[in-house]
């Protein structure tokens, strides 16, 4: 029993060490690649903001918000139809959607780049966020269909008898009842788009549009000198929103969220 706890603690410590370095480097004005010991200074955070962390975070927020709104709304409507309507070849359609969810984005990048060159859509945050939305849609549809399937139909049938349209049923009954699922889909899309690197790197070369992930990468490779302290601070600023979001998500959805199960006592 003791050895089990000890072993688990050792693995946990190994996993913790890189995180400790990150926090240590962010707070220490003389940070290096190695652990330097505690110091309490916010100068690295000021340096990160001076290096453009603020603007990059705003760009990440734009990409994540637009793609989340687009992906979640189109996926909810499609998932409702797939759950409630009679759609021809539904089983095959769902299989295709699942297949698309597993398709590497890498394959799509060059063709999308070419299409965007022809349409003149390069260097536009809006069109870049549409690609991010599209990459999340297949998984979101799959997830939302499963959630909507679990919403009891009695209320809808009653509403239909009263003459409510499908749109009103969706808006007034299904969306409120499937809200936990819609939030999970939104948060997963948001986290995915927030961290996006390759797609904005290729589709938007405009320096003032670069999101946090690209900003950190540029900062890492700038002038051959690696500023570990400011970079660590930048990484923490950039990571905080998604970590917070995950915490809220897993706490709030407690039982319904399968991921929370792993840490629940």
């Amino acid at each position: 029993m003791i050895s089990v706890n000890l072993l688990l603690a050792i693995i946990g410590a190994a996993f913790l060490l890189p995180l400790i370095w990150l926090v240590d480097a962010a707070l220490n004005p003389h940070a290096s690649a190695a652990l330097t010991g505690p110091a309490w200074s916010l100068s690295n955070f000021r340096a990160a903001l001076a290096a453009g962390a603020g603007g990059a975070i705003k760009n990440s927020l734009y990409l994540a918000m637009v793609s989340t709104i687009v992906a979640t709304s189109v996926s909810t409507i499609a998932a409702f139809a797939l759950s409630r309507h009679r759609v021809p070849f539904k089983a095959s359609l769902l299989l295709v959607i699942l297949f698309l969810a597993g398709l590497p984005v890498t394959l799509l990048l060059i063709p999308i780049f070419e299409i965007y060159v022809h349409l003149g859509w390069l260097n536009s945050p809006f069109y870049t966020s549409l690609v991010l939305a599209a990459t999340s849609v297949p998984f979101a549809i799959w997830l939302l269909k499963n959630f909507i399937d679990q919403v009891p139909r009695e209320l809808e049938e009653a509403a239909a008898i009263e003459g409510a349209s499908d749109l009103r049923i969706l808006w007034g009954i299904v969306i409120p009842l499937a809200m936990p699922g819609i939030l999970v889909a939104s948060i997963l899309t948001f986290i995915n788009s927030w961290g996006a690197f390759l797609i904005p790197l290729v589709l938007d070369a405009n320096p003032k549009d670069q999101p946090g992930a690209v900003g950190i990468f540029q900062f890492m490779s700038a002038n051959g000198v690696v500023h570990f302290g400011p970079l660590a601070a930048y990484s923490i600023i950039f990571s905080a929103p998604v970590v917070l979001m995950y915490l809220i998500c897993s706490r709030w959805l407690n039982g319904g969220f399968a991921f929370a199960g792993g840490v629940k006592g």
Binding site: P18, A33, G195, A213, I216, S235, F238, S239, V242
Partner: peptide
């Protein structure tokens, strides 16, 4: 949960 770029930076330093 950390963004991939943060993980890359941490291990780049490590």
């Amino acid at each position: 949960v950390l963004p991939e770029i943060t993980v890359a930076f941490i291990w780049y330093a490590f």
